[in-house]
Amino acid sequence: MIQALRTVLWFVVVTLLLVVAAVKLPEQLARAQVPAEFDDQSGLVPMTGVWLAPPPFAAGDVVAFRFGDGPDDVGFGVVRALPGEQVRLVGGELLVDDNEVNGWKDAGLYQGIHDVGPMTVPAGHLFVVSTNHRYDSLARGVIGPDQVLGKVRE
């Protein structure tokens, strides 16, 4: 009798493990698309093995985002404007809802043009700015929800 119970127990455990694997495997595969280590491509902070936090995001958060479909196409930047906020470039200054954003460099963008915008950040999107503007919203437009990998945290 004990032997039969032991067999049943083993059977249940193995089957449960199979079910859990079946449920979790696709999730893990999806996660595997996100590289565990990122190269610093924005010049913000040298990062390896960073942890990412999910939304909600706030202005000032550093986020990692995809800018292409390659495994290394990951950029970093600071969230400067959230959905519904208005972004405008005036005289080389970045304004969000008419408030000047401190600590950013225009890096010669739109040289000679005094006023660009305003543009409203669409629903679900972020306006992200990095140091050299190679992959950020000024170079590539607003970052969509499918591109945002998460908020970078220690």
């Binding site: 972004v87 405008r88 470039l89 739109y110 000679g112 043009i113 006023d115 660009v116 915008g117 305003p118 543009m119 409203t120 669409p122 919203s137 000024l138 170079a139 590539r140 437009g141 607003v142």
Partner: peptide, 21 residues
């Protein structure tokens, strides 16, 4: 300007840049 900021790499972006400038 709004279209340029939304999609700075779109095919029509150079024309938007010209109009703004």
């Amino acid at each position: 300007g709004a279209l340029l900021l939304l999609r700075p790499r779109a095919p029509e972006a150079p024309l938007m840049h010209l109009l703004v400038g």
